[in-house]
């Protein structure tokens, strides 16, 4: 069975001013799969992730060369509306960042920004998103309380629910569990397994065991280059390149 390619990245270079942070990245990310990006700090994996919904546009003096095709359309073409791109490609960050609003308003935020006013529809979508984020049962009786009162793990799942509420096609996750305890981490990992039925997920993680547990495809970055990408099980048991082997077995000096 051939898989549908969601993102096709072709010869991507990325610059912070004169500094070339990504060099000649060519990679395909498949639909409804979890792809993990691994590599040491500064290797470019988070920069790459942020290229996928043009989050780097917010940083001055950055520049992109090459192509990133989302469903065959170049997301850097002038005709692309960045707001609608980010609705299609949602993002969850390392540190949970709920707004100082109620739980309900947090999840409904993106919908309201997109002009949804119908209260019934808002209620339905908030409930659906919180269920998808495996948070509904824990907070259904306190939707009008402040989101800041939730635990760190709950706040992160709330942020996932907030990202899901606008019904994105892709979810980018930048170290989504690094600030969480093992139980909350486990919940996020279980959630990723559930969500991949409906969404394309791309996750950056420093935790190689986490990449091995949650992803179908793993891509190893080093010094701004994509060293090796492939089936996760193969990459962690029988990597093709010595450099990958050295990194994942901790032989990197």
């Amino acid at each position: 069975m051939t898989e549908n390619v969601k993102f096709a990245i072709k010869n991507l270079d990325f610059f912070y001013g004169d500094f070339k942070a990504l060099e000649d990245i060519t990679l395909e990310l498949n639909q409804c799969r979890v792809s993990a990006l691994i590599g040491p700090s500064g290797c470019g994996k988070s920069t790459f992730l942020r290229c996928l919904n043009r989050m780097n546009d917010l940083i001055p003096a950055t520049r992109v060369e090459g192509e990133i095709l989302l469903d065959d359309q170049n997301i850097y073409s002038p005709s692309v509306d960045v707001v609608s791109l980010r609705r299609r490609v949602g993002m969850v960050f390392q540190k949970p960042n709920p707004f100082p609003k109620t739980i309900f308003d947090n999840v409904a935020y993106g919908l309201r920004v997109n002009g949804v006013k119908n209260k019934n529809l808002l209620r339905q979508r908030v409930e659906k998103s919180l269920k998808q984020a495996a948070l509904w049962d824990e907070i259904k009786d306190r939707l009008n309380q402040s989101a800041l009162g939730l635990s760190g793990g709950q706040q992160q799942r709330l942020c996932i629910a907030r990202a899901l509420a606008v019904e994105p096609e892709v979810l980018l996750m930048d170290e989504p569990a690094s600030a969480l305890d093992p139980i909350a981490t486990q919940k996020i990992e279980d959630l990723i397994h559930e969500l991949k039925n409906d969404f394309t997920i791309i996750i950056v993680t420093h935790n190689m065991q986490q990449a091995a547990r949650v992803s179908d495809i793993t891509a190893f970055f080093y010094m701004g280059r994509l060293i090796e990408a492939g089936d996760t099980e193969t990459l962690f048991t029988r990597p093709g390149l010595q450099q990958t082997e050295d990194y994942i077995t901790g032989r990197f000096g």
């Binding site: 190689m208 065991q209 091995a212 962690f236 048991t237 029988r238 994942i248 077995t249």
Partner: peptide, 9 residues
């Protein structure tokens, strides 16, 4: 130690 790749093998 959660070994990987050749170490695991």
């Amino acid at each position: 130690e959660q070994p990987m790749a050749r170490d695991l093998r």
